[in-house]
């Protein structure tokens, strides 16, 4: 599938720097490291739960760099008033996971 990722390169840089600041181990952040960051958005927990469901693509309870970018993208869009989708639209799936 040849669709550009909706996470723009400049946004990815920003998300990557947040990711790195959280102290990933082996390129992966555990749920307990990501959770406070998402809670910090002040979005309702049920929304954040859905954001997690959509971004933890391999369902391992942890987020790698690309999964984290999906989570942050959804949080920022939600803060702008856009609804969080029930399932991940293809343009939001990181190219590395297709």
């Amino acid at each position: 599938v040849d669709i550009p990722w909706v996470v723009k390169p400049e946004e990815k840089l920003k998300f990557d720097s947040i990711f790195d600041s959280l102290g990933p181990v082996g390129g992966i952040l555990t749920g307990d490291k990501v959770k406070p960051v998402l809670l910090n958005s002040k979005l309702p927990v049920d929304i954040l739960g859905r954001v997690w469901e959509l971004s933890d693509l391999d369902r391992d309870g942890m987020l790698d760099r690309d999964e984290f970018s999906v989570a942050m993208y959804l949080v920022y869009r939600a803060l702008e008033g856009e609804p969080v989708p029930m399932s991940l639209p293809p343009p939001l799936v990181p190219p590395s996971k297709r």
Binding site: G31, V34, V45, D46, L48, G49, E53, R59, G61
Partner: peptide, 13 residues
């Protein structure tokens, strides 16, 4: 830490 499968991989549930 988390059981395989199931929604307990979600720290918000």
């Amino acid at each position: 830490q988390y059981p395989a499968g199931g929604s307990s991989t979600n720290p918000f549930l």
